[in-house]
Simulated scan of single mutants.
Amino acid sequence: MSTTLNILMLEDEPLVAFSLLTLVQEIEPTAIITGPIASVREAQEWLDTHPSPDLVLADIQLSDGISLDVFAHRPLDCPIIFTTAYNEYAIRAFKLNSVDYLLKPIEKEDLNAALDKFHLLQDKFKNTTYLSQMQELFANFAQQNKKYKTRFSVHQGRSMILIPVEDIVCFGKEEYIYLLSTDGKKYLSDYRSLDEVAELLDPTQFFRANRQYLIALSALEGFRSDDWGKLKLKLKVSPGEEVTVSREKAGEFRRWVER
């Protein structure tokens, strides 16, 4: 095992980062510290292009989202100490899984205890079952706390206008991705795929009906089943053709509607 501790720091507040960096250097003077990295995007890019660190010190709230998004959908092969104030149940969950959780402002003795705990538990963090359970925990928590878009910018001639999500009937795919609004107008968007759009929308309010349509629950008036088990949807405003849900997705659609 290497005697040099490699630490990745995720923190978007410069003063907090400087204070934390100073404390770590006092407690672990030989540690190599990367960061602070201030955004989810930058953290993901760094992890995609570098070997995993021995430890991550991560603030929950970064400049463009929550740090749990960094770890929710990638192999988790190093322990994490979170450094922020969040809800009581999250704190219990992380402590139960032996990942420490420090409340700001961070005291030296608390950080020292967390690093001592890390050293004691290093073997546990090599256990693939444990890491899989932690990744599932992060994914669930990230999903629960994810903030979805409330409006979309679209093209109107040479201008851009904003459409609130409550005024959206569906997103559709032709040669491009467009938005259909409740007033029956189609607007060109800059998104490249419906998958990209779906990531930005609350899945309790929008459903991927098929390859061509992502529909809003608020725009659904009803549906009927055909002789082959497909569902034919009736929307408050038609995109110009009938929107269908395959027999394979019919059950998922019904659960979504009746949730």
Rank of each mutant, 00 (worst) to 15 (best):
S2C: 08
T4E: 13
I7C: 04
V16S: 14
F18R: 15
T34N: 11
D48I: 01
T49E: 14
I60C: 04
D69T: 09
P75K: 05
L76V: 09
C78T: 11
I80H: 05
E88W: 13
A93Y: 10
L96K: 15
Y101E: 08
P105F: 06
D110A: 12
D110E: 07
A114M: 13
L115D: 10
K117T: 15
K124Q: 14
T129D: 14
L131H: 10
Q133K: 09
M134Y: 09
F138Y: 14
F138M: 14
F138N: 06
F141N: 15
Q143S: 10
N145K: 13
R151V: 03
F152H: 02
S153V: 03
Q156E: 11
Q156L: 12
R158P: 06
S159H: 11
M160G: 06
E166R: 01
D167T: 00
F171L: 07
G172S: 11
K173H: 02
L179E: 01
L179Q: 00
L180D: 00
G184M: 07
K185C: 03
K186R: 06
Y187E: 01
D190Y: 01
Y191L: 03
E196A: 03
A198R: 14
L201S: 07
P203K: 06
P203A: 03
T204A: 06
R208I: 06
Q212M: 06
Y213R: 00
Y213T: 02
L214R: 06
K232L: 11
K234P: 01
L235R: 00
S238F: 04
P239F: 10
G240M: 02
E242Y: 08
R247S: 00
G251C: 10
R254Y: 09
R254I: 12
R255E: 12
R255P: 05
W256K: 03
V257D: 07
